[in-house]
C-alpha cells in the first residue's frame, strides 16, 4: 500500500518577506494615523454655528441672480474665454519644442535635463501660486492670467507629449532616417504621425482644464470670471456668485462633452 503523502500547504508569498518589518510597518502606520486624527482641532460649537451660514450660502444658490450684475458677469466670462483661447494656443505652441527636448530618445543629455527642468518647474507649483507671481510681475488683469495658464499648459502638454514620443515605435523612425531625410523631415515623418492622435487629444483636454483654471486664477487678481466671482463673495451676493458658478459649470460641461466627442473621433 502506498504511503500517504502529507498534503503540501501553499500560501501566496507576502509582499514584504520579513515578518518583523511587515508587522512593524502596519502597527507604525496605525499609530501615526491615530495621532494625526487627534491633532486636528475640532471646534464643535463653531461648526454648529457655521451650519446656519452654510445654509444661507446654499439658499443663495437656489435663487441664482443672473440679472442684477449681468454686465460684470458677461464681461468676466468673455475675458475668461479670451484668456483660455490665447493661453491654450501659446502654451501648446511652446510645449512642442519643450516636449521634443524632454524626450530621452531624441534630445542630447544637456537639452533633456534643461527641458525636464522647465517641465518640473511648471508642474511643481499650483496655478494659483504661479498666478500670484505673475500678478506681481505684470499687475492685475488678463495678461497675468494668460501667462499663468500658458505656463501651466507647457508643463502639462510637454510632459505627456514627451512620454508619448518616448513610446514611439523606433523602427518607423529608423526607416525614415535610412532614406537620407533631414532632421526636420525625420520629425515630420518618423515621429509626428505616431504621436499626433495623442497630441490632439491632450490639446482638447487642455482647453477645458484651462477654462476652469481661468476662473480660479481670477480670484487672485489675474483677470477673468474669477475676479467677478470674488467680488460677488466679498459683497455677500450669494445669488450672483451662484449665477456665476452655474455658468462656469455649464461652460465646462459643454467643453468637456464636445472635446471628448472630438477625441473619440481622432483616436
Amino acid at each position: 500500500m502506498p504511503e500517504a503523502v502529507a498534503a503540501r500547504r501553499w500560501r501566496p508569498p507576502p509582499l514584504i518577506a520579513n515578518p518583523w518589518l511587515r508587522h512593524g510597518l502596519m502597527i507604525g502606520a496605525a499609530i501615526y494615523l491615530y495621532l494625526a486624527i487627534n491633532s486636528v482641532p475640532v471646534n464643535w460649537p463653531r461648526i454648529v454655528m457655521g451650519l446656519e451660514r452654510g445654509a444661507a450660502f446654499v439658499a443663495g444658490f437656489l435663487s441664482p441672480d443672473f440679472v442684477s450684475r449681468y454686465d460684470e458677469i458677461f464681461e468676466g466670462l468673455l475675458e475668461s474665454v479670451i484668456m483660455t483661447v490665447i493661453a491654450t494656443v501659446i502654451g501648446i505652441a511652446l510645449s512642442v519644442p519643450v516636449a521634443l527636448g524632454a524626450a530621452r530618445n531624441l534630445a542630447p543629455r544637456p537639452v533633456y535635463y534643461f527641458c525636464r527642468f522647465i517641465i518640473a518647474s511648471a508642474r511643481t507649483f499650483q496655478e494659483v501660486i504661479i498666478a500670484i507671481l505673475f500678478v506681481k510681475m505684470f499687475g492685475f488683469g488678463v495678461l497675468a492670467g494668460v501667462a499663468t495658464i500658458s505656463f501651466a499648459t507647457i508643463g502639462f502638454m510637454a510632459k505627456l507629449l514627451a512620454e508619448d514620443i518616448e513610446a514611439i515605435e523606433p523602427s518607423q523612425a529608423e526607416a525614415v532616417r535610412a532614406t537620407g531625410a533631414s532632421w526636420l523631415q525625420w520629425l515630420n515623418f518618423g515621429i509626428q504621425p505616431q504621436v499626433l492622435p495623442r497630441f490632439i487629444g491632450l490639446s482638447l483636454y487642455r482647453v477645458d482644464i484651462n477654462f476652469r483654471e481661468s476662473a480660479v486664477v481670477g480670484i487672485v487678481g489675474a483677470g477673468g470670471i474669477g475676479a467677478t466671482l470674488k467680488t460677488a463673495f466679498d459683497r455677500y451676493e450669494y445669488g450672483v456668485a451662484a449665477a456665476i458658478l452655474i455658468l462656469i459649470i455649464a461652460i465646462v460641461m459643454a467643453c468637456e462633452y464636445s472635446s471628448s466627442w472630438i477625441r473619440r473621433r481622432v483616436q
Partner: peptide, 17 residues
C-alpha cells in the same frame, strides 16, 4: 544614404500615413 535603400523586418512603415 539616399543611394542605399533599406527594407525592414516587420516592414517599419509609417503606420498612420
Amino acid at each position: 544614404r539616399r543611394r542605399i535603400g533599406m527594407i525592414f523586418q516587420e516592414y517599419a512603415l509609417i503606420e498612420r500615413l
